[in-house]
């Protein structure tokens, strides 16, 4: 079996494609600026931010980090198998990647259900305004990522599929971007204040 590869040493061809990396940087700047604003706001209301942070379940945040990181590991393995033209393994790893995403969403939904039940909605205080906006925006990215991975999965199982390595890598990089954003959110929202 002949393996596939792209010369990613070229400045115009980073792994996943240049357009995907432009999107990644835009997303990182957006989330990054919002988190910096959150930290700046916490200086005005340190007690509110501290007591609100204690109302979050750190174990849920930790479990969700584990789900996304493990999911990212399987995504990297799936790309590796695809490059080696092993579509059976690639498909299996892709399913495990999506499972990680679904577990993340399941736990997040439960967390949201608890917060709404306790009356900690978006207007409760400035901490929860940031919490809801940032985590919901991230959840939307995970949902979009799962739709993209589902389409890759369908493409992988189609006979005479036109799925290219570039498409697979771009989808993988989008999924890893969800990891990166969560890695920004988790320490600041769940641990810092």
């Amino acid at each position: 079996m002949e393996s596939q590869s792209i010369n990613s040493k070229n400045i115009y061809y980073p792994p996943g494609g240049i357009l995907m990396w432009i999107i990644i940087f835009l997303e990182l700047f957006t989330f990054g600026m919002a988190l910096v604003a959150m930290v700046a706001y916490s200086k005005d209301e340190p007690e509110v931010f501290h007591s609100s942070r204690l109302l979050l379940n750190t174990t849920f945040g930790l479990a969700n980090t584990v789900f996304l990181l493990t999911s990212g590991f399987f995504m990297a393995k799936s790309v590796e198998s695809f490059k080696a033209n092993d579509s059976i393994k690639s498909s299996l790893y892709l399913k495990l990647t999506m499972l990680g995403g679904f577990l993340f969403l399941l736990l997040k939904s439960f967390e949201y259900y608890e917060k709404i039940g306790a009356g900690l909605s978006i207007g409760y205080n400035s901490f929860f305004s940031f919490y809801w906006m940032l985590t919901l925006f991230h959840v939307i990215h995970v949902l979009v990522g799962l739709v993209i991975l589902s389409s890759v999965y369908v493409g992988l199982h189609k006979k005479n599929s036109s799925l290219e390595l570039e498409d697979f890598e771009a989808s993988a990089v989008f999924w890893h971007m969800c990891d990166l954003i969560w890695l920004l959110l988790f320490p600041i929202i769940y641990l810092l204040f």
Binding site: S8, K9, P14, P15, G16, L69, G72, F73, M75, A76, V79, A172, V173, H176, D179, L180, L183
Partner: peptide, 11 residues
């Protein structure tokens, strides 16, 4: 995550 999972180390 960026350098290993996203393979940025080869970029």
């Amino acid at each position: 995550v960026a350098f290993y999972f996203m393979e940025l180390k080869t970029a």
